[in-house]
Design a binder for these strands. Structure first.
Lengths: 225, 225
DNA sequence: CTACATATATAGTGATTCCTATGCAATACG
DNA sequence: CGTATTGCATAGGAATCACTATATATGTAG
């Protein structure tokens, strides 16, 4: 039952990071006090300062954890759908179509971080690096995808990835303000246009495949061994 | 030299609203204290509470002023460009291509408000209403535009307006993180694809027309008469 | 000229926040 | 088994914030 000190330390760190990500996404970074994070993690503010030194330190650590866990999945798991349009639908489904899921909270956290990056160069640097890497990955996926289907996208893979990400981001934001104005069909039409596919006929959407590989945002302390 | 009480009151209100919009956009709503707004307006916090009752009241008043002053210009003034691609370039130019301008700060404020709307239903309602109206306007412009040029957009005007706005929003966000990854050419290609135009050749962009009708965000107190 | 009304300034209060200094109990180690 | 170390808790300080209560000065009306 007793843990080594290293184990307890790692568990505390993981709990704090999970609680931080959760609360930051939920209430907004500024509205979350250090004590709130600590309490949500079942610890006290002392633990936060022992681990991260400051609230900004906690934020950067959360950012780091976020960095290497999201959106890797964006295109990686899409190939499981059969039809090309079904694949596009699956993409949208993972980004913006499922409220109250983990990916929903991740995207809220992403917005929170984006806004922070607007004023905090330290955060902006991390986001920029992540953006480059993520775009590279998407670009590779997209160019493979475009060559297997014979379509002619509107730009080279790197730029195309930027356009796709931008459209998805914008649609997801619009969905939060006015949910009815954005649906899967619309997202698919937009994506298809960017990808240079022929115009989409009516009601072409098959039932979606939920890609369930998004890492959990809530507590996932390292399994005790 | 002496003003009537009504004049001074109106001037103070305008000063406070301008200072509020400015500071909210610049530093973020939560990071701005009531005293900071008052001081920037050359008044004290007492004036803020006399006029708006609370910080939230000030925010809603700023929101109201913002509501009826932005993005009306989005498509309204675009027709002045000659070539179709030049028109698209002008659209992007007004949204996301000019840092450190008034429209730049307005868009920062818009993001600030969007984020707020995520948690504050009062703000969300206003943004939703504005979104509906703005989309309607854009849809009308777009359908006229699409019929004069003979192109076949990827969706009906209302949905098309949503796609266009989403793409522009997403690109503008990306530009703030990684300015080099977004340029006018890219925006034009994306827009052209959504509008169903034939693929854009290389380097088709002519010098942009700066549409200078965005209302100023900084102080514009009612002219004394 | 006087009495009132109003717009804004001033001063202060309680609540909240981030962070520091220190204490303590459990583990690590010789 | 005793000492050192470590991980975290506890308590509190200084700053900031939204907001209130009251004062003041200036315009307004009779």
């Amino acid at each position: 039952m007793t843990q080594t000190q290293g184990e307890r330390k790692a568990e505390t760190r993981a709990l704090l990071l999970a609680a931080g990500a959760d609360l930051f996404a939920d209430r907004g970074i500024d509205a979350v006090s250090v004590d709130a994070v600590a309490e949500a993690a079942g610890r006290t503010s002392g633990a936060v300062y022992a681990h991260f030194g400051s609230k900004q330190g906690l934020l950067l650590a959360v950012l780091d954890a976020w960095k290497q866990s999201v959106l890797t999945v964006l295109f990686a798991e899409v190939a499981m759908s059969d039809s090309p349009l079904g694949q596009l639908a699956a993409v949208w489904d993972n980004i913006g179509n499922n409220p109250d899921t983990d990916s929903d909270r991740w995207s809220l956290l992403e917005h929170e971080l984006w806004q922070r990056a607007t004023r905090d160069p330290e955060v902006a640097d991390v986001l920029r690096a992540r953006s480059v890497e993520s775009r590279g990955r998407s670009a590779r996926e997209l160019s493979r995808w475009a060559s297997t289907m014979s379509v002619q996208p509107v730009a080279d893979p790197d730029d195309l990835a930027t356009l796709v990400k931008a459209l998805l981001t914008g649609l997801e934001m619009q969905r939060r303000i006015e949910p009815d104005s954005v649906n899967c069909d619309l997202a698919v039409r937009g994506l298809a246009a960017l990808l240079g596919m022929p115009p989409v006929p009516e009601i072409p959407i098959q039932p979606h495949h939920r890609v369930n590989a998004t890492p959990s945002l809530t507590t996932h302390p390292p399994r005790e061994r």
